[in-house]
Amino acid sequence: MVKEDMQHILVALVEDKPGVMQRISGLFRRRNFNIDSITVGRSEKEGISRMTLVVKGDEKIVEQVVKQLNKLIEVIKVSRVDERESVVRELALVKISTKTDKERAEIVQFTNIFRGGIVDVSRDSLIVEITGSSSKIDAFIDLVKSYGIIELARTGLTAMVRGSKK
């Protein structure tokens, strides 16, 4: 069972053209693939975007995902990222309700422990920015849940293989 739901990270280099995202999300829907998250942004090359996809499934499914993605004309390259050999990061913004000074101090303390930052303070709330692996963010959220999370925004994973290799 655990194996079935394995999480896999794929990095795709795609042409920065209108409709690319639709092609990719359409493909996932049509082929019944499960995506956890997609992040997109510019890459080091002009006109080429870099996407990180987190997909769930067994080995056979992930292989199909890679092959089907590769078939899209605007997808230039798809690689599978081994989490152990890569830097994997996610950014989260968490708006937490803080009713008392004590609560505020506690959140600040947690944030420091998690090497996050307070990016906004108001009378009865704080926004915390936190970066790291998904499990680190999960842990932080778990910790501050009891204070009341007013809003949560997670970016989804982005990843890069360590070392000089591309």
Binding site: K60, E63, Q64, K67, Q68, N70, K71
Partner: peptide, 8 residues
């Protein structure tokens, strides 16, 4: 010719 057909 289509790698996606193999093993599908």
């Amino acid at each position: 010719i289509d790698p996606a057909e193999i093993g599908k």
